[in-house]
Amino acid sequence: MNQLSSRSQDLPISQAPAPGFADPVSDSQQGFRALLDALAHPGCIVTLAAACGRPEALDAAPAAALLTLADYDTPVWLGPGLDDAAIATWLRFHTGAPLVADSARAAIVLLKADALPDLQAFSLGSDIAPEQGATLLIQVPDLTDETAIVARGPGILGEIGLPSCGLTDAFWQQRAALNDAFPRGLDIYFCAGDAMLGLPRSSHIGMRA
């Protein structure tokens, strides 16, 4: 996990990083509780209350999530559209997280809805160590449209409808294909502004009958 410095993503480092949490102890605790809530209640929208400084291209929710979760032990991969110097500098400065070039080695992945790689690019973990499956933070346009996509499983009473999050059918098909990979899988947070919606690997994706 610590072997990454020599193979880091080759990004220029800009001069002054944007600010992070104003009160790191309290803000990251609140950030964590929001992330916990989101993952424990898949499909429900939670708000990240703590305000935090962030680079321009980054929404508040994924910014707070990164400041809450990332550090020296979490290799981060910045996806297309978010792999700029401002984000890299900000993340390195506030968290010390190593930026990796190989997406399959990332514990945390930052992505944008309109530039989403194939989900096979990320670590699903193994049957013996499923916790090594990656956490995806996907910045999306909004979380409000209605679709026929539903999720079932732990954290959900019955079933819950999901928004498309501006993502393609191909994405949702790929995610549905991971249903059977459990306990391997990806834990996804869809983020828009200061709102987020969690979709853990344990959520079974299907279509409303």
Partner: peptide
């Protein structure tokens, strides 16, 4: 520090808790 543990330790714990929630019943080291 608030809660005794340092922030780095809390982050490690929080990541483990989130993985535990995502994989119900699985013991995360």
């Amino acid at each position: 520090n608030f809660g005794f543990l340092d922030e780095q330790t809390k982050r490690m714990l929080r990541r483990a808790i989130l993985k535990a929630v995502a994989i119900p019943g699985y013991q995360v080291p």
